[in-house]
Amino acid sequence: MLEINKGIGKPVELKGLKGNYLYLAVGIVFCSLLLALILYGLRANTYLITVVVLTITLGGVWYCMRMSAKHGVWGLTKQEATHSQPKAIIFSSAKPFAQLRETKRPSHRKGTAPTGNRK
């Protein structure tokens, strides 16, 4: 008997493009088609439009396939996370560290139970 939910939990994959790289490649193709329409509307040379659009499309899809093969499904997400982290955290004063030591400790001693809410 075949399993009905065979692909649940697996990332989307098409011809080696996995996960977010597939969506990125589709976006590149869509944007290059829009670029072709805009350039054609501006009455540019048809052969030049064809060469430019094919170069952008094939180069973009090739780049997506290469990155998908190199980094896997979550590579794009990891790359975004890496770029959003600061390279260094610089403190100009010691005030944040001084506040760490100012934590209030319980006032009761060992063996005695705390006595309700004090105000």
Rank of each mutant, 00 (worst) to 15 (best):
E3I: 10
E3D: 10
E3P: 08
E3V: 08
I4W: 06
I4F: 10
N5E: 06
K6C: 03
I8E: 08
K10I: 03
P11M: 03
P11D: 01
P11Y: 00
E13L: 05
E13F: 00
K15V: 11
K15S: 12
K15Y: 14
L17A: 00
K18P: 01
L22D: 00
Y23E: 01
Y23G: 11
L24Q: 08
L24H: 11
A25R: 00
V26E: 07
G27A: 15
I28G: 03
I28V: 14
I28P: 07
V29Q: 05
F30L: 15
C31S: 14
C31E: 13
S32Y: 03
S32A: 15
L34P: 02
L35C: 07
L35P: 00
A36G: 04
L37C: 06
L37D: 08
I38T: 04
Y40S: 15
G41A: 07
G41N: 07
G41F: 04
G41V: 01
L42G: 05
L42R: 07
R43E: 02
T46L: 13
Y47F: 09
L48T: 13
L48V: 15
I49T: 04
I49G: 05
T50G: 08
T50Y: 05
V51I: 09
V52H: 00
V53R: 00
L54R: 02
I56K: 03
L58K: 01
G60M: 06
G60Y: 05
W62R: 09
Y63S: 01
C64T: 01
C64V: 04
R66H: 11
R66E: 06
S68N: 02
S68A: 08
A69G: 12
K70H: 01
G72H: 02
W74L: 15
W74R: 08
G75F: 03
L76D: 11
T77F: 12
T77E: 15
Q79L: 13
Q79P: 00
Q79Y: 12
Q79I: 13
E80W: 15
E80H: 15
E80Y: 12
E80T: 13
E80N: 14
E80K: 15
A81C: 03
A81T: 05
A81F: 12
A81M: 12
T82Y: 11
T82S: 09
H83N: 13
S84Q: 11
S84K: 14
S84R: 12
S84L: 14
Q85T: 08
Q85D: 09
Q85F: 09
P86M: 02
I89F: 06
I89R: 04
I90W: 06
I90M: 03
F91Y: 08
F91P: 03
F91I: 02
S92V: 08
S92A: 07
S93C: 04
S93N: 06
A94V: 13
A94H: 05
P96K: 07
P96W: 07
F97P: 09
F97E: 07
A98D: 15
Q99A: 09
Q99V: 06
L100C: 06
R105I: 07
P106Q: 05
P106M: 00
S107M: 11
S107G: 11
H108I: 14
H108M: 10
H108R: 13
H108A: 14
H108Q: 14
R109V: 04
K110S: 06
K110N: 09
G111Y: 00
T112C: 04
A113E: 10
P114H: 04
T115F: 06
T115I: 09
G116K: 10
N117W: 11
R118S: 12
R118A: 14
